[in-house]
């Protein structure tokens, strides 16, 4: 095995380990927000490891540009998903509040100085989520 193949093997083993860690974390962690933390591992670092391994194995310009595109789209879209899931979990009360050390969002929601514009949204329609 050459040095390049050893690096590729280590990167792929790292990606596999991160996938396994995400699986264990998503089973063991207690609520949605903590599971979001575990979910990020194969989504970002695992994908980076696999894509670097791929570029080392097939070093052409076509592969490199496509790999950069894949990583860009993943980094653009995954934070949106995580944000929407966390927002929805907070509003539908799927958060274990006894596990939180501090909850700055609850403090801001209760703050009357930040309540401007909320009065008009007091009657949410059937298909619209209530604004927090």
């Amino acid at each position: 095995m050459s040095a390049g193949e050893i690096v590729v093997a280590l990167l792929i083993l790292l990606a596999g380990f991160l996938s396994l860690a995400a699986g264990v974390g998503i089973i063991r962690f207690p609520d949605v927000l903590t599971r979001l933390h575990a979910a990020t591992k194969p989504q970002v670092l695992g994908l980076v490891a696999v894509l670097v391994a791929l570029v080392i194995q097939v070093p052409t310009w076509g592969v490199l540009t496509t790999v950069i595109l894949v990583m860009t789209f993943q980094l653009l879209t995954q934070p949106m998903t995580a944000h929407m899931i966390a927002r929805s979990a907070y509003r539908t009360d799927h958060v274990r509040r006894d596990l939180l050390i501090t909850d700055e969002l609850a403090r801001d929601i209760d703050d009357p100085a930040l309540a401007i514009g909320r009065e008009s949204d007091q009657e949410p329609s059937e298909h619209e989520m209530p604004r927090a």
Partner: peptide
Amino acid sequence: DVLLAIAICALGAEMAL
């Protein structure tokens, strides 16, 4: 989402290997 991320990683790993 996690399942999909693992599938993407596995596809890439198979290509690299």
